[in-house]
Amino acid sequence: MNSRSKTSTVLVVLTLGFCFLACSFLLNLWGHPALRAPVPLVDLAFIEPSTARLSAADLIKAKADTSNFECYTCHDKKNPVKIKYDTNEMIILPTEHQDLKMGHGRHNRNNNCFNCHNEKNLESLQTRDGRELKIEESPQLCGSCHGPTFRDWEAGVHGRVSGYWNRAMGGFERKTCPSCHDPHSPKFPPRKPAPGPHALHTAVASSPAEQEHH
């Protein structure tokens, strides 16, 4: 084969090669983006700013049902409440209050309803130094024992503050203690965490059977 016919062969091969390339480009034969597992939308419950629970103050503000705080619907004002203890000096809760979980502190020293509730007016609270407080004024009461935490709370540093950081531009709301802590068992309740991050490139199982296999 002389040089000229070799050139011709090369040119013909190239022509065919280019034709083949053009076709495969048009048919988009390769280089498809890898299939990604769809990322599910997060449950809206993880976005809304509710607190762990609702305090009396929250309920009053929301004009919600506060009948739970109307003690004298059942109790009798003239008949003071008597607290009963078992042999371990644990309070025996009456059936009407079985929903309460008594766990304030790691000791039993708070095993007395009237540390906080006012025995003379069950619908109000009382501090250790004998001040009477409305049920929605609980931070004063909590603060009478939890001094440093109360100080932080007053500064907006313990607990949540929402609204305007710039107080000249708008109002703000500071949640009170029972919005997060159950007074009878104040430890912050655990919860289910929101879903974690999804990687950009996640291999998708090719068939449902394979998915089951994993």
Binding site: I47, S50, A52, G156, V157, R160, S162, G163, W165, M169
Partner: peptide
Amino acid sequence: RTRAGRYPACVEVCPAGARKFGN
């Protein structure tokens, strides 16, 4: 939000009050 005087979204959603923001 913050240049309009408000708290960031992460501050307002934190159920534990762990996030603090300000000037």
